[in-house]
Simulated scan of single mutants.
Amino acid sequence: MDTDSRAKAQRFADLHREGCFLLPNAWDVGSARILEAAGFPAVATTSAGVAFSLGRTDHDFFAEQPAEDRVDRETMLRRVHEIAGGISVPLSADLEDGYGESPETVATTVARTLAAGAAGGNIEDFTGDRTRPLYDEKLSADRIRAARETLAADGEPFVLVGRTDVLLVGGPLDEAVRRANTYLEAGADCAFVPGAADAKTIRTLVRELDGPLNVVMGLTGNALSHDDLRELGVRRVTVGGSIARAMYRHLLDAARELADNGTFSYAADQLSQTELNDLFRQG
C-alpha cells in the first residue's frame, strides 16, 4: 500500500472512532465522484448497483438467481479497483459473502480488496441457499477471524465489517445481536445489521452490541434522519443500492415516456453537459 492509500485508509478507520457519519454507496467511478464532490468523507460500493450496471440481479436466493447472473469476485474487484483509483476519499467495498464459503476464500477476498485500493469491506453471512439462508454461526465467525488474521499479517489499516442478514431472512433480533457480537469478537471493526430501520430496534442494537453499528437507510424512504440516527448512537449510515435504484427509476420513466408518448419532458431536469464536465474534470 502506498503512502496516499495508507493515509486514506487510516482516515477511514478514524471515522469509526466517534460520532456518526454518512457513507453513501456508488456503483461506478462517475457515481463515486459525484458523491465525493458532494463532500462525503468516504464512499462505499453497492453490490446491487454494480450488478444492475451490468444488467444482472443482486442478493437473491440461488434458485431465483442463476449462477451466471451473479457478479463474480474478479468482476467486482475490478470495479472496486476502478472506483478506488478514481476518487481521493477512502472507499469501502461491499464484498457480499466473500465469494466463497471457506474462511480461506474470504481471507483471500479481503486481501485482494486491500490490494485493489479499498480502505474497508463488508463480509455477510447470507448464503443464497433457501434451505440454510445464513452460514453457521461458528463458521461465520471463523470467516471473519481468517480475514482479520490476514489483515493483521499485512499490517495495513482496513475496516473489516461483519454483516449479519438475520433480520432480512426473518430471524429474531436476539440472534442478530448474538451474531453481530460474535463477529466483533472474531475481529470485525464494525457490525452491520441490515433490516434494522426503526428507532426501537436500532436503540436495542446500539445498547447490546460491543462495537460500532452500521445501519442502512433509504430502502423504503425511512423517516429517520441522520440527526436521529446520531442521537440513537449509530456510528455509520449507508444507503445500499437505493441511489442506484432511484437513478434506474428515472431511466425507466424516461424510456417509457419515449416509447409510449414520443415526448421528451424527462429531459427538463437533466444535468447540463457543462455541469457534468465540471464534476468529472480531472484536477
Rank of each mutant, 00 (worst) to 15 (best):
D2M: 07
S5H: 14
R6Y: 05
R6F: 06
F12S: 03
D14G: 04
R17T: 15
E18K: 14
L23S: 01
W27T: 06
S31H: 09
R33A: 06
E36W: 02
A37W: 04
A38V: 11
P41E: 12
A42I: 05
T45A: 09
V50D: 01
F52M: 14
L54F: 08
R56A: 14
D58V: 09
D60F: 06
D60G: 14
A63S: 13
E64W: 06
E64G: 00
Q65S: 13
A67F: 08
R70K: 13
R73Q: 15
E74S: 13
E74I: 06
T75H: 02
L77D: 04
R78I: 01
E82Q: 15
E82W: 09
A84M: 08
G86Q: 10
V89C: 12
D94A: 13
D97I: 11
G98T: 07
E104I: 09
E104C: 00
E104R: 15
T109S: 05
V110A: 01
V110Q: 01
A111H: 03
T113M: 07
A116I: 05
A118F: 10
A119F: 02
G120T: 03
D125E: 06
T127Q: 02
D129Y: 10
T131I: 07
Y135H: 13
K138M: 02
K138W: 01
R143H: 09
R145D: 09
R145K: 14
A146M: 11
L151W: 03
E156D: 13
G162C: 08
T164A: 07
L167C: 11
L168Y: 02
L168E: 14
V169I: 15
V169G: 03
G170T: 10
P172M: 02
P172A: 14
E175K: 13
E175F: 00
A176H: 03
A176L: 05
V177C: 05
E185S: 13
A186C: 10
G187R: 04
C190W: 07
A191N: 05
P194G: 10
A197M: 10
T204N: 11
R207Q: 14
E208N: 06
E208R: 13
D210H: 15
L213P: 01
V216R: 06
G218D: 03
L224G: 09
L229H: 01
L229V: 07
L229P: 01
R230F: 02
G233T: 05
R236G: 01
V239A: 08
G241K: 01
S242V: 02
S242R: 01
I243S: 01
I243E: 00
A244S: 14
R245V: 12
A246Q: 06
R256E: 13
L258C: 07
A259M: 02
A259W: 04
A259H: 11
A259N: 06
D260Q: 13
S265P: 00
D269K: 12
Q270R: 11
E275C: 06
L276H: 01
N277D: 14
F280R: 11
F280L: 15
F280C: 08
R281E: 12
G283H: 14
